[in-house]
């Protein structure tokens, strides 16, 4: 064990305290004070991915009851084989509407089809469910 000189102690003290302050200030500044200086580091999980993602269930009316319809299976996707993100994700009502129209083509234009849709945000979780009108009759919002 070597003896620490006063000068060494001061250098270490300044570096240690300064670095601890810097390490703590970054996430505090970004995550608590909502600062946006990128030199400061925040530790958020995937803050830039899946910022707005929607969950869409299609339902077909059969014998006065709404039964779930799998767009995934009708369009020929599986867990092993699925298309690019732009085609498979329904991130906006207009995407759900377009997918619904494709399903009407596959199920028959005289089908009654609707979607139930809710969208989520990175910080807020899921929103409320939104139910469309009959998509095959040109409905939807």
């Amino acid at each position: 064990m070597s003896e620490m000189t006063p000068a060494t102690r001061i250098v270490r003290l300044v570096l240690f305290v300064g670095l601890v302050a810097w390490m703590n200030f970054g996430p505090f500044y970004r995550q608590v004070l909502d600062g946006d200086n990128q030199h400061m580091r925040e530790f958020r999980m995937y803050g830039t991915r899946a910022r707005r993602t929607c969950q869409v269930h299609f339902e077909q009316k059969q014998k006065d009851a709404w039964k779930p319809v799998s767009r995934w299976e009708i369009e020929g996707y599986s867990f092993q084989k699925f298309p690019g993100r732009a085609r498979r994700m329904l991130d906006k009502p207009k995407d759900a509407l377009a997918a619904g129209r494709r399903l009407c083509g596959a199920l028959g234009e005289d089908s009654e089809l609707r979607y139930r849709m809710r969208c989520g945000h990175v910080r807020d979780g899921w929103g409320e469910w939104d139910v469309s009108e009959d998509l095959c009759a040109g409905g939807g919002r």
């Binding site: 995937y46 991915r49 969950q55 869409v56 995934w72 299976e73 996707y77 979780g125």
Partner: peptide
């Protein structure tokens, strides 16, 4: 959002195709 599991669901949907 995170503790309810909805944030993780969104992540899975984003990376694994869709909820379907």
């Amino acid at each position: 959002a995170f503790l309810s599991g909805s944030r993780l669901q969104q992540m899975y949907y984003y990376y694994y195709g869709s909820h379907e």
